[in-house]
């Protein structure tokens, strides 16, 4: 039997939290995306030639969406579970007749929903600056949903692992942001020297951005099948890690 009521209230609580911090959750990514468009799309982009037949301003849209999606999914989900730990309100979750699975569905579900909405808003914003055409809407949605879920899960894991605010920021800042920037958000990997092209293949974010970009322009650094496989692999890895945390009561139950 699943405690549906509990999932509902956790989900609602987390969605309401976004409502309270509307500026932070929605406005700030939208503004930063717009800034990227002004700088890279209009100012610099006008001097850059087309990449694989796509104008630069349009080319960077999928990368920009992924940049916001990844950072926001992680930030949302990690904060969502870290804050109750920090304030102590977690006691109620721990003493409730609720399984770890239901906790994850509530928190990660809400974080992923918020990211998904955010992704759509950024796409709409981008459409104001450039003309967007989506070649494979279904694949695009699939990537969007998979990314939201897997990186919210990843954020949830970070939130559980973090024992202070510094640790909470550590992985997003030192690992995720560099990986996103170096994963071809703003360029095609083929523009790099051969050695760096090989190095980049070890960056998991590359597969995400490449696959997502393919769904728009049918242009990709790696084949879309490989991309999908990599995202699914990451999702499974996160699920396994969360399951292990559940088994051991990691950082939650002393």
């Amino acid at each position: 039997m699943i405690n549906v009521q509990a999932i509902k209230v956790i989900y609602k609580f987390e969605m309401l939290r976004a409502w309270h911090t509307l500026m932070q959750t929605i406005a700030s990514p939208v503004i930063s995306t717009s800034l990227y468009f002004v700088v890279f799309g209009a100012a610099i982009g006008s001097r850059i030639e087309e990449i694989d037949g796509v104008s630069y301003g349009v080319f960077i849209v999928p990368g920009l969406v992924m940049l916001s999606l990844l950072t926001q999914s992680i930030a949302n989900a990690s904060f969502g579970i870290y804050f109750p730990k920090f304030t102590g309100t977690i006691y109620e979750i721990m003493s409730a007749p609720i399984s770890f699975f239901e906790i994850v569905v509530g928190y990660v579900g809400a974080a992923a929903s918020k990211s998904f909405i955010l992704g759509i808003i950024i796409l709409i914003t981008a459409n104001l600056f450039v003309d967007l055409e989506i070649a494979h809407p279904f694949v695009m949605m699939l990537f969007l949903v998979l990314t939201c879920i897997s990186f919210s899960l990843f954020g949830f894991i970070i939130g559980l692992w973090a024992t202070n605010f510094e640790k909470l920021q550590l992985i997003p800042m030192l690992i995720v942001t560099p990986l996103v920037f170096l994963g071809g958000s703003f360029y095609s990997v083929s523009m790099l020297p051969p050695v760096w092209q090989t190095v980049t293949l070890f960056n998991p974010v590359l597969y995400l951005i490449s696959g997502f970009r393919w769904s728009f322009f049918e242009v990709a650094d790696v084949s879309v099948g490989v991309s999908l496989a990599m995202v699914s692999l990451f999702l499974v890895a996160c699920l396994v890690l969360v399951w292990w945390m559940f088994k051991t009561g990691y950082r939650l139950r002393q």
């Binding site: 009521q5 509990a6 209230v9 956790i10 609602k12 609580f13 309401l16 409730a96 609720i98």
Partner: peptide, 16 residues
């Protein structure tokens, strides 16, 4: 930032 009403509803739901 929760309200009194929301938080008691939250607790009730959490316990199924």
């Amino acid at each position: 930032f929760d309200t009194v009403w929301n938080t008691v509803n939250f607790s009730r739901g959490l316990f199924g």
